[in-house]
Simulated scan of single mutants.
Amino acid sequence: MLISHNACSVTTSFCLTGIPGLESLHIWLSIPFGSMYLVAVVGNMSILAMVRVERSLHQPMYFFLCMLAVIDLVLSTSTMPKLLGIFWFGAGEIGLNACLIQMFLIHCFATVESGIFLAMAFDRYVAICDPLHHTSVLTHAVVGRLGLAALLRGVLYIGPLPLMIRLRLPFYRTQIIAHSYCEHMAVVTLACGDTRVNNLYGMGIGFLVLILDSLAITASYVMIFRTVMGLATPEARVKTLGTCGSHICAILVFYIPIAVSSLTHRFGHHVPPHIHILLANFYLLIPPILNPVVYAVRTKQIRERLLHILKARTQLT
């Protein structure tokens, strides 16, 4: 609903367009998007179930992996059901409060995921550079506190975003959000009035999270590689680095789509709008799909447990 105020209006709801420019293909796009969402849910639920029942996986790395699985479920579920509703039923309307909640969940849990990757890098650093103290340093309580710290950081960093929109930007030029979900800048660009504070805060948080976290992760791996290069034999080096393989793959899967989407959004002015939106959706879908696959393929314990379950079910049938 709009309440007129000169050229701008107070709105109590918005309308999400889905993938602008590809409206005629929405029903077909729902097939790959729905399939990817299903794979993400099944994959991450499987990881949670396997770690829960397999006592040999009750280690810091796998507890962090469970945190990633929960985060990925929240990220994908906060966007995909609504997107599929747009594709199937044209249900693009979303209330202002629901839009702000969706915005908070997306940006908060993306921030939390970055924090968990940083905690996992610390786990790999201690495991390789100080292996004798790994179990005493990264106890279950410490792992829990690191996860809680990542969550609190996400809430503190992202909490002001929807609050600033609610309190500072009551008037909008249009209700139409040319996006498939309530992304921060997609909403702010519709607002009337001074949006510089919102823009600067959003950019500042992006710098703190993506740049500083990635620098800290890089620093931890520099120290890890220095330690690995000091090992006596090539076989020992390869075996030790192999324990980091899953984490490195998961980091690349998380940061590369975000970096590509952000760079395209800010500098790709000649890129068609539907490419922007597709990239923005892929960076919320690709990590939830690939994280379970990466860890299932590269982690011996998870792979063996998964094969055992599949073998048992085959025998039952």
Rank of each mutant, 00 (worst) to 15 (best):
Gly154Leu: 08
Tyr295Val: 04
Gly21Leu: 10
Gly206Asp: 01
Leu152Asp: 06
Ala216Leu: 12
Ile177Thr: 13
Ser30Thr: 14
His140Ser: 03
Leu100Cys: 03
Thr111Met: 08
Val53Glu: 14
Leu16Thr: 02
Gly230Ser: 13
Cys99Lys: 03
His270Met: 15
Cys192Gly: 02
Trp88Thr: 00
Val253Gln: 11
Val209Thr: 13
Ala91Ile: 02
Gly115Tyr: 03
Tyr62Gln: 04
Ser9Ala: 02
Thr79Leu: 15
His269Phe: 08
Thr135Asp: 01
Cys129Asn: 09
Ile309Ala: 07
His58Lys: 09
Thr195Leu: 04
Ser13Arg: 04
Ala121Asn: 04
Pro292His: 00
Ile128Glu: 07
Gly115Ser: 06
His133Gln: 10
Arg226Ser: 07
Thr189Leu: 03
Asn44Leu: 12
Phe14Met: 00
Asn199Arg: 14
Asn291Pro: 12
Ala7Pro: 10
Cys129Ser: 08
Pro20Arg: 08
His140Leu: 01
Glu304Lys: 15
Leu68Ala: 10
Ile224Ser: 00
Ser214Asn: 10
Leu290Trp: 15
Thr227Trp: 07
Pro272His: 14
Ile177Ala: 13
Tyr201Gly: 06
Leu75Arg: 13
Ser30Arg: 10
Glu235Tyr: 14
Val142Gln: 13
Gly268Gln: 12
Val74Gly: 00
Thr299Glu: 14
Gly206His: 07
Leu306Pro: 12
Phe225Met: 01
Leu22Asn: 00
Val297Lys: 02
Met164Thr: 01
Ala219Val: 03
Gly95Met: 08
Lys300Tyr: 15
His107Pro: 01
His26Arg: 08
Ala7Trp: 01
His276Ala: 09
Leu132Asp: 12
Leu163Trp: 11
Ser214Gln: 01
Tyr37Glu: 06
Val293Pro: 05
Gly245Ile: 12
His58Leu: 03
Cys244Glu: 06
Gly90Thr: 04
Thr240Gln: 07
Ser30Trp: 04
Leu279Cys: 03
Leu285Trp: 06
Tyr295Leu: 06
His107Gly: 12
Val51His: 05
Gly159Pro: 00
Thr189His: 07
Val297Cys: 03
Ala7Ser: 10
Val188Trp: 03
Lys300Arg: 15
Ile177His: 11
Met229Lys: 05
His265Met: 11
Gly115Asn: 00
Val53His: 14
Met61Arg: 15
Leu156Ser: 00
Tyr221Ile: 04
Gly95His: 14
Asp213Asn: 05
Ile211Gln: 01
Gln175Phe: 14
Leu75Ile: 05
Gly202Tyr: 02
Phe64Tyr: 14
Glu93Tyr: 12
